[in-house]
């Protein structure tokens, strides 16, 4: 983990983007998240790590209220986005999700053309006034997602025809096109080969300039490579949260140390 020292870690100037206080999540009778407090900073990549079933994905899905689509799921506590509670009944989850975009574990391009996939968000939110603007948004998003050169000649080809890594970058382009403020990524590289993973990781680092990125990952190397801050979850508790370098080199909690050195998880 020598590269830990290379990664730039100037996170001090950033402001809080998301503030979670006392978040509890219940799936039916089971208590999946227990009193989590976390501050997610602007223009920062925050990694959630922890063993399988520790609740990191569940907590991620709380941040844009994707858990609303699951009937038996209940969320308690408060999560503030720019100081506004997103679980306030007055907040429309649909508008929230336009601000807090999401990329899923398995690439899920719509069965439409590459162009339509990226244009989907801008179209439903009415972000562009005419075709030329839409074309521009699509191109910018595809460029930011580092896939433009591969697909610029076949924008009308179906998005499902791309390779796995290309599909995942297309999904990232699709999420960027809505110009969100926060980008949530649920194990975005778990279905990708090492080369595609490297491309996506590089991309995440670039995206930090515009968004706050939260990434759930099983790979500790990945967390170390791409993130500035890391949160370690275990059995539904947020065990430790801090700068990535500190978490990996000098963990305060013995559980974090055990996980990082491979004794639990």
């Amino acid at each position: 983990m020598d590269d830990l020292r290379i990664v730039e870690r100037d996170v001090n100037t950033h402001t809080n983007k998301i503030t979670a206080r006392g978040v509890d999540v219940f799936y039916g009778g089971s208590h999946a998240i227990k009193g989590v407090d976390v501050d997610i900073l602007d223009n920062t990549v925050t990694a959630f790590i922890g063993p399988s079933g520790c609740g990191k994905s569940t907590f991620l899905r709380c941040l844009n209220r994707m858990n609303d689509t699951i009937d038996i799921c209940r969320v308690k506590g408060e999560i503030l986005l720019d100081g506004e509670n997103i679980y306030n009944p007055k907040v429309d989850p649909v508008q929230l999700r336009a601000k807090v975009g999401m990329v899923f574990q398995k690439p899920n391009p719509f069965p439409k053309s590459i162009y339509d996939n990226v244009a989907y968000g801008p179209k439903i939110h009415g972000l562009t006034r005419n075709k030329a603007e839409l074309d521009e948004v699509v191109e910018t998003s595809l460029r930011k997602a580092a896939i433009w050169n591969e697909v610029k000649d076949r924008l009308q080809a179906p998005g499902t025809g791309l390779s796995g890594g290309q599909q995942q970058r297309l999904c990232i382009a699709r999420a960027i096109a809505t110009s969100p403020e926060v980008l949530l990524m649920d194990e975005p590289c778990s279905a990708l080969d090492p080369i595609a993973t490297a491309q996506v990781e590089e991309l995440i680092d670039e995206l930090r300039a515009q968004f706050s990125v939260v990434i759930v990952t099983h790979s500790m190397q990945q967390a170390a490579r791409v993130s500035q801050r890391t949160a370690f979850f275990h059995l539904g508790n947020l065990v430790e949260y801090g700068e990535t370098g500190q978490i990996f080199t000098a963990p305060k909690d013995p559980r974090t140390e055990s996980y990082i050195t491979g004794r639990i998880g």
Binding site: T69, R97, G101, F104, P109, F110, P111, Y120, I124, A175
Partner: peptide, 27 residues
Amino acid sequence: VPQSLRDGSFGLGATQSETIRKVVFPA
């Protein structure tokens, strides 16, 4: 129609009816 397509659409801030009209129904 796979749930992942619906999730993808919801994740972009589409409403349920937009998701049905533009993603689920065409699929």
